[in-house]
Nucleic acid binder design. Sequence first.
DNA 1: TGGGATCGATAGCTCCGGCATATCGTTGCC
DNA 2: GGCAACGATATGCCGGAGCTATCGATCCCA
Lengths: 295, 295
Amino acid sequence: MELRHLRYFVAVAEELHFGRAAQRLGIRQPPLSQQIKALEADLGVSLFDRDSRKVRLTAAGEALFPAARDLLDAARSAERATRRAGRGEAGELTLGFVGSATNLLLPQALRGFRQRYPRITLRLRELTTTQQVHALKDGLLDVGLLRPPLLGAEADGLHVQPVTAERLVAVLQDDHALARQRLVAAADLAEEPFVLFPRALGPGLHDQILRYCAEAGFTPVVAQEAVQMQTVVALVAGGLGVSFVPSSVARTRRPGAVFRPLRPQTRVVHLAVAHRADTTNPVVGNFISAVIAAG
Amino acid sequence: MELRHLRYFVAVAEELHFGRAAQRLGIRQPPLSQQIKALEADLGVSLFDRDSRKVRLTAAGEALFPAARDLLDAARSAERATRRAGRGEAGELTLGFVGSATNLLLPQALRGFRQRYPRITLRLRELTTTQQVHALKDGLLDVGLLRPPLLGAEADGLHVQPVTAERLVAVLQDDHALARQRLVAAADLAEEPFVLFPRALGPGLHDQILRYCAEAGFTPVVAQEAVQMQTVVALVAGGLGVSFVPSSVARTRRPGAVFRPLRPQTRVVHLAVAHRADTTNPVVGNFISAVIAAG
DNA sequence: TGGGATCGATAGCTCCGGCATATCGTTGCC
DNA sequence: GGCAACGATATGCCGGAGCTATCGATCCCA
């Protein structure tokens, strides 16, 4: 049995007239009669009672009719769904993101994407940069929003594309002596205890910070570690030390902490979208476009 | 798109290996590759990522895979259901029956039929013989259990087949003078008021009763009409008259009424199964076999 | 590092079958 | 009784589904 047989059968069952059904199908009447006959032979059942005057469904035909319609409908909708999936308009996307992307980039990107592609089911996972790198390579994640740079082998097999660019700023307790200055000189922080995220969470950015300190002539003493940028700020506000965070983190004000531009300026730090270089999932491309539009 | 494409697609998606999938399908690998390619072209979407080393589903392929399986399952079950319907093992049957068939024949026939053909949905309608004749001709009924004979034009286009044979017996109030006799002579009832069903409900049987009375030398005076045989017996028990009923009615004893064989014996009366002569519904034949087995 | 093995794609051929036209046989109707 | 309507049948053509042979790429291993 093929869908052709069902298409022909449904046409005849609806018209109850071979000639008109054939016309509707864009074929001639004899091949239609043949195909119906072939279907009947295949099923071992006669589907129509027909004499030269009228055509009627048999009991078996009555049984097949609704089932055949449903099958054809289901086939059509499967086709549509597949095409949509092929255009990246339907399906699923598992997205990783670092906590600091939730300030601005992630909500804007999600808003744009959901509006344009409402049929995509999004699964969101807050993960560190390092976790995202592994999850991307393991196929657990389709796209990651992370903090480059990725070190050496980390980037193998991944496409990483920067989306935002910002500088690091200093975070100080609000009653800190340096908080009265408009800018903070990095060298002035040499003796301060630091609050920083563990290197393992994002070695690229971590190294970049240490390098910056080194250029300012000191090695920061990490008094306290924290995973989230928000936590870093909270700990600074609590008097546990000072820190550097991307300037976008300063957008969410927190009592007890102040943000100050650094002198010299740090190199720009990015948020980037990453995905496997060998992905063919068109949803990935569509999502990345949305992120770039939001960035 | 044809079911063939889906069958091939599912095989490849399950095996993730064109060679093995082709083997499972009983064809060679090149035509399988061709058909998959044709399906992809038809859908305008690529379904597999494949190099000469490994085969993977694309996002579109992931979308199609479960839908294709479901479609193939649905097609198989539609085939089975159609074949069953063709053998009269599935579908619906609308059955008419006269009240007096419920004594013995109907329950036995239903038990046997439901056991053998559990997938048939039965719709039961208690109707008089005349109503069944019309409903059969109008296609509202597939089969009728009725009381022949059918008069002249009534039988046109119908097949009627007797199932049971019995004699009429007299029904008397239990304190009736004649109730003390083992047999009742018809002529002795000449002056009695009769309880009978209206002629319109079953003219054949009605005429047969009147003819029997005429042969016994009288014309019964109908003092009371009743539609159901059970009601006839109840009215007789209530003292409204005497009557004749098929002997099977005597199986359900009713206080106040007694049943006595008649002399001379009446001609046999039947319960019969009737259906349109032009029906092709195999369920009808199966049901009739069950009725005959029960009769 | 090169040769063999594996695997999907391609080329070229065959043949079945789906569709075409022409015609038949039956039935209902004026 | 002749015509019109309709499905079935006869016959031929052509596309395409499947075959064999082969290619090209990749992986493995000595």
